[in-house]
């Protein structure tokens, strides 16, 4: 779901940076409001960012291919408003270390992962209505949050690939391409949803405080 350099138009790339700048500013403001000393949260956020980075190297077998995890849903669930800066930093490191993902498109890619992560955070918070400690709502909302995050990210990426690249498709073909690209991500979204639910249920048993990314 990364959009590499050179594919999309410069105006879309700059728009992506502007949106990322705005969302980062908003996240930092929310973080500063939420925590008395935001600096205290950095080691935890950084370790989790690194952990997500490493965990996304895990390949899930989906015969006949294998897919690698995106984890934007789980990042949102565990990091709350820290997830947007965390994703931005993770993607920057990826661009620095592997030149993977693109630098001019860093803003766009941060939005493609970060906005779904924030969505997942708010979906997962709905579990409080049904009982914070009960396994069923935790699993259900973790699945929904992660599924929605991947689906949203894939749809946004498909829109960008079709409408912001220098290609001349006719309108019907464009619509079909968006639908096809989004549907192709359906199995990934399902797997990612089940995987996230399993991780959340595991954390609920082992260390439930980790799921309260929203509570200082």
């Amino acid at each position: 779901m990364h959009i590499p350099d050179g594919i999309i138009s410069a105006s879309a790339a700059i728009g992506g940076y502007a949106a990322t700048g705005g969302l980062t500013w908003l996240s930092l403001r929310r973080i500063k409001k939420q925590y008395d000393n935001a600096r205290n949260e950095i080691p935890r956020a950084a370790l989790l960012t690194a952990a997500f980075f490493v965990a996304s190297l895990i390949h899930i077998p989906l015969p006949p291919v294998s897919v690698h995890l995106v984890l934007s849903g789980l990042i949102g669930i565990m990091l709350g408003w820290f997830s947007f800066p965390a994703i931005l930093v993770g993607l920057l490191l990826q661009a620095v270390m592997f030149q993977h993902g693109g630098l001019t498109t860093l803003g766009i890619n941060a939005c493609l992962m970060g906005i779904p992560a924030l969505l997942a955070y708010y979906i997962f918070r709905l579990r409080i209505l049904f009982g914070r400690e009960k396994p069923f709502p935790n699993g259900l909302f973790a699945f929904t949050a992660s599924f929605a995050a991947i689906a949203l990210g894939a749809t946004m990426a498909a829109f960008l690939l079709v409408y912001a690249t220098p290609a001349y498709f006719d309108a019907a073909a464009e619509r079909q391409a968006v639908i096809a690209l989004s549907l192709a991500h359906l199995p990934v979204a399902l797997i990612e949803g089940v995987f996230t639910a399993m991780v959340v249920l595991f954390l609920l048993k082992v260390k439930p405080t980790l799921l309260d990314g929203d509570r200082p």
Binding site: A45, A46, L47, T49, A50, A86, V89
Partner: peptide, 8 residues
């Protein structure tokens, strides 16, 4: 965040 993440 960048430096810490890289460190870990």
């Amino acid at each position: 965040l960048l430096l810490f993440t890289y460190r870990y």
